[in-house]
Design a binder for these strands. Structure first.
Lengths: 343, 343
DNA sequence: AATAGCACTCATCATGGCAGAGTGCTAAAA
DNA sequence: TTTTAGCACTCTGCCATGATGAGTGCTATT
């Protein structure tokens, strides 16, 4: 896996990768020699390029085109070559402004974050909300909408809100619901949502409760309310990837869009980033997701006040502006962590 | 605007429109004569087609290609020719299943509806949530998340939930918040959200309240909570329009995606459907939205129990399967209305 | 070890010819 | 008068052709 390269080879590889990132066109030997004002002639560059190709770092689409970096090259570039740019003051300002002012609850903030990531990177921004189940329970409440229709509202200490429409067998007064709420709130205080769910199931077994109609109803309703919906994922800036020349072919784009619509796959991939700290980078087929050829992911986790973990990042072509995007993702993750941890 | 056509011309126009809808290719005179087993020869059809072209109902991309329906033709087709198909039992089943079982609150139902519309039509499904402001207030609640961080939850009688993160100047106990909630709930009972907002502003003027710290704080917080966010719009099945051959050109697709991402324009268009009852159809440039060339919208409003109005529909190419989609939109709108009106 | 030179390869573009689909017009048939 | 058949014409799509140019690999030279 590890690649040993002379100083010169590294310079040339870097030049090729950056040129290709900028232009999306195969880069030829003379272009490298000229543009980067290196002190080698194009012939020398050609020799080096031939080596690099042999090592699997470059390919050429055909005999007499320039060379294109392989995934391996991007990997090497990202690991040892890339000069990360600083996040500019203006960018910071923009990130802060958007993430901060998004008024409405956790989802609002995360949605805005995802949009900001997309705007600044010019690729697709993505945010996976912290896992609700591992978050700490804060409040449950039932609101009567109609005779037998009840809205259950579940709040976690992150400010995540889940609401669910329930049908009950019998009529209930708002007063009944209030008492049920009080009971359940004390029952689940301090637990995580997952634990709370366990607790409810336990209590349902508990004989004593089976005879108290009130209790048993309360437990039944809350059991439904606490059952967690699928992961919440925010994707913004899908249209931007239409701008990338490598996706001008409709077929490939369709794959990506499909993948994004069925968020399942995506989440699976992103969950891998959960464990590791710092910015993670998946290049092309490194990500297990089946159809991810030509696509890279730059992601980082963020943590909330109650120590649950979410993920945020950018999806773009492998030919991505790594030197820009990596710092942006990093900065944003830190910022969001801080915002969500403020008491 | 009105077009007078002989029986024969109508038959031929219908054949052309339907052929073109099916194949997306210019249809020639012999194809019409053959495929629809009409009793005319291709020569006759040619004569008629020349007439129709003169009337602005057909165009040909070049001299010796077949003809393509114009927007005017689609309009005529939709108004006077189309034979609406029945919604099949299977489709009904599917719509009911999806819209019903979507567990989680109003947004859940609407999101699922939009997805179902997309699946059944094979185009893009879209739903605009009922205007929160005109809906009846049901409940407000404040939950303390941190020292100075409060989550405000606002519920309408439709089961729509809006939550918003607030920062307060001073610390507040959960008990303070509870009392504030009780006060505000009684203050706003039975009003629409818009009226409730008015009421709050009134009360803030009221001198008596300015000296009661509790009250004035409550009013300040609730004022923020009641301020309504932008319209909620659910769009699903964007990837499906990639399948349409007329959008294989990337440029046009980009326009559409852009339009969908900035939901503003879209909402504006859809709001026009608010007033009229029944299924509305906008073909191509009939919709004021600037870049809507080649795109049609089939939409219908739906009403909730508290008589607020939302909109749902399908967006696709002008060359859309009107005979299928119109009944589906119609049926779905009725069903959603019924579901949301059930007490 | 680095470079210059040269023959070679391959994509791209414009050209021209050919087949096929479809039209418009005219003259004949109903 | 309406419908149909026939025919010349037009235009696209496809293929083969050849010229151009970018870029390579190899070899000989510095």
């Amino acid at each position: 896996m590890d690649v040993e390269l002379s100083q010169r080879s590294r310079q040339i590889l870097e030049a090729i990768v950056e040129d290709y990132i900028a232009t999306a066109e195969p880069v030829g030997s003379s272009a490298v020699a000229r543009r980067h004002s290196l002190s080698f002639s194009s012939a020398t560059v050609r020799n080096v390029m031939a080596n690099l190709e042999e090592m699997g770092l470059l390919t050429s689409p055909h005999t007499s085109a320039g060379r294109i970096p392989t995934e391996k090259a991007y990997r090497f570039y990202v690991d040892s070559l890339v000069a990360l740019r600083q996040v500019t003051r203006e960018e910071k300002r923009q990130i802060i402004r958007h993430c901060r002012t998004a008024g409405s609850g956790l989802s609002g903030i995360l949605k805005e974050t995802s949009r900001t990531l997309s705007t600044l990177s010019n690729y697709m921004g993505i945010v996976v909300a912290p896992r609700f189940t591992t978050d700490v329970f804060r409040h449950i409440e039932f609101i009567r909408l109609g005779n037998r229709r009840i809205l259950a509202i579940l709040v976690s200490s992150n400010g995540a809100v889940q609401n669910r429409l329930l049908e009950t067998g019998e009529d209930m007064t708002q007063d009944d619901l209030l008492r049920m709420g009080t009971y359940l709130n004390s029952l689940m205080e301090g637990l995580t949502i997952a634990e709370a769910r366990q607790r409810i199931l336990q209590e349902m077994q508990n004989e004593k409760n089976q005879y108290d109609q009130m209790m048993s109803r309360a437990l039944m309703l809350s059991e439904q309310a606490v059952t967690v919906e699928s992961e919440e994922v925010f994707v913004e800036g899908q249209a931007r990837i239409l701008d990338q020349p490598e996706f001008s072919d409709v077929g490939r784009m369709r794959e990506i869009f499909r993948a994004v619509e069925h968020k399942g796959q995506l989440v699976q991939l992103l969950n891998q980033c959960m464990t590791a700290e710092g910015v993670q980078i998946y290049i092309g087929s490194e990500s297990p997701g089946s159809s991810s050829a030509g696509v890279s992911l730059i992601a980082s986790r963020f943590v909330t006040g109650s120590n649950t973990v979410g993920i945020l990042g950018v999806i773009g072509p492998t030919r991505m502006g790594y030197s820009n995007v990596i710092p942006i993702v990093d900065y944003t993750a830190r910022l969001v962590s801080r915002i969500l941890s403020e008491q």
